[in-house]
Design a protein around this nucleic acid. Sequence first.
DNA 1: GTTTGATGTAACTGATGGGTGTAATTACCG
DNA 2: CGGTAATTACACCCATCAGTTACATCAAAC
Lengths: 206, 206
Amino acid sequence: MSNRSWTTSGVCREGRREAKRQAVLQAGARLFNDHGYEQTSLEDIAAALKITKRTIYYYVQSKEDILFGCHQQGLGVLGETMAQSQNPDLPVLERIALLIRGYCAWVSSDLGATIAMVREHSLSPERRQALRASKAEVDFQLRSLIKQGVAEGRLRPCDPKLVAAAVFGALNWIPHWNRVADPVPQEQIAEQYLHLVMQGMVPARD
Amino acid sequence: MSNRSWTTSGVCREGRREAKRQAVLQAGARLFNDHGYEQTSLEDIAAALKITKRTIYYYVQSKEDILFGCHQQGLGVLGETMAQSQNPDLPVLERIALLIRGYCAWVSSDLGATIAMVREHSLSPERRQALRASKAEVDFQLRSLIKQGVAEGRLRPCDPKLVAAAVFGALNWIPHWNRVADPVPQEQIAEQYLHLVMQGMVPARD
DNA sequence: GTTTGATGTAACTGATGGGTGTAATTACCG
DNA sequence: CGGTAATTACACCCATCAGTTACATCAAAC
């Protein structure tokens, strides 16, 4: 399955170069998720793509570059979800649902999972900082929505920081248990989590 | 703070040896959590304890031994919580609360956090399997309680596997954000999470 | 005070893996 | 065909680090 073949029959030159860089990132992400960043050697990535280590260096400058590339790429994808959930015309609860569903789908992809699974320590301080900032942005978004929901009386009073931490914790943990041969469909997880977070486990009395 | 001093004035011989082994595990756990297992060298652990690498090898046989020791030790502590939550005289909801509170406290400790933060890949296959089994046991416990709760009508119908995954995800993620200079008190987190999981965010209608 | 446990010093080994240089080779494109 | 981009093969450097060993030493126990 993982063998998105190396030879790309894409647009001429420029586009192909980018596509191959992509392939390197994708393969890196998958291996990082499966075996950990430190435990993945460039030879491993090369082997997965059936190319040589030297060729990898034709597309990236360092191993860390691959990891950071995964993050950038991944955050780009998440950006769409972020944008959607910022639509002020939608009811708050729906915007929260949108964010949770989108994040769930995202963290279930190779690139998204990398951000949840690879510790930040592997990045240089500057890049680590950049990554933290991006994460903080997403966190801020959910907290804001929760605050708004409480203010509008649509949510119980609560500590938005802790509730957001719980939600992202649950979501970030998904790739830790669902990267298996027969994974639970991502949509199903999202619905169940959403229901849990909204209604809770205890049935309303009478 | 971390400087639980090396020189132990404990019971004679046997006891002291064990106490020092403990100190190695404890220091290892903290460093593993902070910088990752792979990024922590034995020299780092030695430096933290102000001893030499040679001395460490007097108490453990390998680096992996330290990690596995942390896991064993940690799981031992969690055992108490597991036992409590198995008490059949208690109402189901209370047993669930007990488990969540206990797990929250546990995962907030150095030894507990190690299990949540260090990927399993760093262990030998046999040990990894043992660890997985222990984790599965805890997971099974919560799932069982949820099932029972549903059967008794005290919980809404739900997918116990997914709900348990969400709960443990939220809990396991705690050390990822709360290992800071001024952490949120662990009890406070437990209460908020418990409330979230039980009642949900949306207020009951009329 | 002698045994024995505990720790330090200080070197070495062996392997891994990131990263580089270069020349040769292959694939593509005009 | 001829030129250029892509890729390989291969050799190599260098740093890190787990793991080991031999020897000396220090401290407590009996």
